[in-house]
Design a protein around this nucleic acid. Sequence first.
RNA 1: CGCGGGGUGGAGGAGUGGUACCUCACGAGGCUCAUAACCUUGAGACGCCGGUUCGAGUCCGGCCCCCGCAA
Length: 287
Amino acid sequence: MPNANHSSLKMVFFGTPLLAVWVLEELEKGGILPSLVVTAPDKPAGRKLLFTPSPVKVWAQERGIRILEPEKLDDDFISALKTETYDLFIVAAYGKLIPQEVLDIPKHGVLNVHPSLLPQFRGASPIVTAILSGEKETGTSIMLLDRQMDHGPIVAQEHVDISDVPKASKLGERLARLGGVMLVNLIPKWVLGNLKPREQDHTRATYCGKIAKEDGLINLSDDPEKNYRKIRAFDEWPRAYFFSERKGKKIRVVIKDARLEDGKLVITKVLPEGKREMDYIDFQRNL
RNA sequence: CGCGGGGUGGAGGAGUGGUACCUCACGAGGCUCAUAACCUUGAGACGCCGGUUCGAGUCCGGCCCCCGCAA
């Protein structure tokens, strides 16, 4: 797997969630492995609030790759990074803002995978926002990180059709893998200086914020298409839900699946609080 | 020990100590020009282990699994 070209490249990968693992998997397929991975520290997760390592950490452990998981990107961390010299950093959904001092370390800069057609949808939720806003297409951008968020010049960009309103989980994987493949193709050229980044048209920049739990609450009498987009966009988190009355108790009902039929929203699968997933028909029958 | 809800025929639900019931689906037969209709009829279940009891789906203890909150 390590061929002469790539093994000579010393690279650090910054990332945390599953999205970042997809990028890593494509890099690995392309024969590119980081020599160090930086990820967020373990956090309590799950019903028992057990400390859980990030997906990227698990991935790196399985391959025996060195891991740094700083709480803060402070001086200690920076000096730890500087004990070696690196050619390139790659960032994909790391979760923390990376200070200029770190950006200055690698010889060939810091490349970022961003799942949108920058300058559109800078920020935290580009995938979900693209689906919600009814875009016909989105894509993946590889950009050179600078001091401002998602602001640096674009090295490469590819479009993806989303007129079929994909689920966010599926679209996320597609865009992340695309990003990994793009990196595999462009890193060799990039390192040789054969690619010139293109400044973003900052006047056309749009931004998307974090999704909140409450965003998943939908009003069933709202516009069907709008609700359908929410269900698809929030399929991973926070999930579209509404409240219902059951035996005098107010319960949360998560919509697991639905489709749009003749301009009407047809809910098919539902997950009521305290129960398991069931057909919406059955749920209604036994209210 | 973070908080809480739940596991009953194939699906969804009733049933807080005394023969397990309902709706839907399924099999057989019938009726009908016809039916996701109707009538008759049939098969099929209490997550697992132990305890209390004359008797446990129901009470007690342990285990497994599912889900909501939280992160």
